[in-house]
Computed example of a mutant assay.
Amino acid sequence: MKMISMSYGQALFDLKVSKEDRQNAAKILRESEELQKALVNPTISKEEKEKVIDKLFPPEIRNFIKVICRNDDAQCLLEAFDYCEVLIQKEEQILTGTLYYVTKPEEGQLARIREYLKKEYQAEQVELELKEDASLIGGFILKVRDKVLDRSLRGKLEKMKQNLAWR
């Protein structure tokens, strides 16, 4: 992530824009590649960009987006939104992760995973994104921050291959 994106993300965090408005603005940007290209395009006047911003984005966040466009940094918008979310999660002690599985875990299993993560990362809340991945053959992979816990059958087979190759 670029430093400029992090600076804008910090500014958005400091503005305390509502979660709904942040999410709506990010969704509008993510869903329209044409809009992203238009905001970055130097041949489109700043006035035209601001008219589009006024029509599409929630009032609470318009000025933030306009400032970024005036500074010719519109390519940083999505990263700024992402970094703002990281700062909010850190402040609220929310941990996010992804659980890849073959067989969807039961609620009890998910509750134990969340409790483990709360203790391990001193988090108040854990949000897990669940993704089915049949290529794991069995077991699961848990990704949190920069750590990966691989308890999949595919991972075990790969380790066995590596161990055999070293002999």
Results as ranks from 00 to 15, higher is better:
86 V>D: 03
118 K>Y: 12
40 V>W: 13
51 K>L: 15
138 G>T: 06
167 R>S: 02
65 I>Q: 01
74 A>K: 02
124 E>K: 13
1 M>H: 12
74 A>Y: 04
49 K>N: 01
32 S>V: 09
43 T>M: 09
87 L>F: 03
66 K>Y: 13
84 C>Y: 08
167 R>H: 10
62 R>M: 05
146 D>T: 02
35 L>N: 01
104 K>A: 12
79 E>C: 07
167 R>F: 10
137 I>S: 03
148 V>C: 11
74 A>M: 05
34 E>D: 14
129 E>A: 14
144 V>L: 08
11 A>R: 07
34 E>Y: 11
68 I>R: 08
47 E>Y: 09
49 K>Y: 05
5 S>E: 15
126 V>Y: 07
135 S>R: 07
82 D>R: 10
143 K>M: 09
3 M>T: 12
138 G>F: 07
105 P>L: 11
67 V>Q: 05
165 A>D: 08
134 A>I: 10
138 G>Y: 14
18 S>H: 03
128 L>C: 11
11 A>Q: 12
28 I>Q: 13
149 L>G: 03
148 V>A: 09
154 R>V: 00
30 R>W: 04
26 A>S: 04
127 E>C: 08
93 Q>K: 12
76 C>M: 10
64 F>T: 08
2 K>N: 06
68 I>A: 08
63 N>R: 07
163 N>Q: 13
154 R>T: 01
12 L>T: 06
15 L>M: 15
69 C>L: 05
117 L>G: 04
148 V>S: 06
84 C>R: 02
110 L>F: 08
111 A>C: 03
73 D>I: 04
127 E>P: 00
94 I>Y: 02
58 P>R: 01
159 K>G: 03
71 N>K: 15
41 N>F: 13
152 S>C: 06
